[in-house]
Amino acid sequence: MQPLLVIAVVADELQDRAVAIAQAHGAQGISIIEGRGIGFPEHRVFFGLTYRGYEKVLAFVLDERRARAAEAALNHELLLEQRFKGLVISLPIEEAMGADMDLMSAHLDKLDANKAREQ
């Protein structure tokens, strides 16, 4: 399986929902970074000043299939294509250390099994 690093940049108020979606798709460790950002097109407010919003950067690792599903879900459920919402991208990972891969895949297997039972 090709692991991907998924980076979701979402508006501050979407953080909790974004984390929930990522976890539902199997993400285990999620890094959350606080940030501020300028959107496109720039949001101009009084006196021609440019607005800078609060945002959260979520980073997590998933295998390719699940990462795609998580990205789609984030995009769809959080309406990321609207203004001031955010975006999500993913990058291939060349090497990963510091995580127990057996534990991770065991968790993912259990998740799949649960899903199969529901259907």
């Binding site: 501050d12 949001h43 407010v45 607005y51 919003g53 609060y54 001031f84």
Partner: peptide
Amino acid sequence: GKGLSNAFAKRGSLPLL
């Protein structure tokens, strides 16, 4: 406090702020 001022900046209305 931060959230409110951020929301007002986003709204872009000077009188409201």
